[in-house]
Design a binder for these strands. Sequence first.
DNA 1: GTCTATAAGACGATAGAC
DNA 2: GTCTATCGTCTTATAGAC
Lengths: 195, 195
Amino acid sequence: MARKPGSRSDITGPRIRAAARHLFARHGFAAVSMRQIAAEVGVQAGALYLYTPDKETMLVDLLRDHMDELIAAWDAAEPSADPVERLEAFVRFHIAFNLDHAEAVFLSYMELRNLGPENFAVIEGLRRDYENRLEAILRAGQDAGHFAVPDTKLATLAIIAMLNGVNTWYREGGRLGRAAIGDIYWDMARKAVAA
Amino acid sequence: MARKPGSRSDITGPRIRAAARHLFARHGFAAVSMRQIAAEVGVQAGALYLYTPDKETMLVDLLRDHMDELIAAWDAAEPSADPVERLEAFVRFHIAFNLDHAEAVFLSYMELRNLGPENFAVIEGLRRDYENRLEAILRAGQDAGHFAVPDTKLATLAIIAMLNGVNTWYREGGRLGRAAIGDIYWDMARKAVAA
DNA sequence: GTCTATAAGACGATAGAC
DNA sequence: GTCTATCGTCTTATAGAC
């Protein structure tokens, strides 16, 4: 009875990641036990250790994969050379991507403190890579005279913080659709950095 | 040996709250044990239960006290009737208060999910009370023709999210002092809601 | 008001059967 | 690849001594 009929690691692996992401986002990394994750997947706790050496590695793998996907998606989508159009594209992309990956976004902001120093540095570096892409847009727009901000780095962080806020209140089927939200935040972001 | 010489509840109580706030903010509510809190204070774990019925009540008391203090401080400080001046005062107040109470702010955004439904509703209600004060400013400024935002509620949340971002990067002794940070964020907030 | 001691159980992780 | 069983430790919370 040891091996369950039809058991396959290429199915169980993704299901473990999905269950861990979901439970960590909902209850917090420290509050979720390996037994809970295993129960959600339908295996015993010991079986999880075929897929990860330990619990922290499960978390950092989720966070790294998320950041890699975020950066790759933006790099694949990046539009025209005009800084204003690029900023608009960034605002709409960031909101849409965050809403499509709400659990992973939540984790990548809330659970960094559960990482050891070296894992923390990896995720922090990826986040900075992403921020630098927005900062470059703002700098190009200032050089072209379209934007004027008192501090480019702080404007970068301010815009990202503002956009991240959407995930704290958005509910599917609410008053505003995603396109309308993009319009509203683009209006505010555009004016905030306007010359 | 039972009672320690000089032990007094009016000293131990605040020290327990401070230790809990500090450890919860640093490691997360679920990751901190009652034994750790007791060790930080210098008592045994059982003694904590003279001051709180359980761990969750410790957390909700910290969060409620923080929100009460935040709202009372703003209500005591609120300045002129002019909406533009009031918005500037709000921006500077919010940044300063958040930096002065960084651990409690962190908790009140990160640990709400560790509350039961009734405790959660209490803290959510206080947060909405505070948000409503900013929303009223934005509405008054629109009525007077000074501001123009596509959606007043979302502008409220966007500004608060932007300002909250300061706590994620600010370090004492960094490149910018608090006054300079207030200037920079006031410039961006003002333009974001400008007519 | 604080201690020691303990109840009753959950935790992360591993060993060995199949 | 997954199971059962288990190790050693930690957990929240309580009881009773002083």
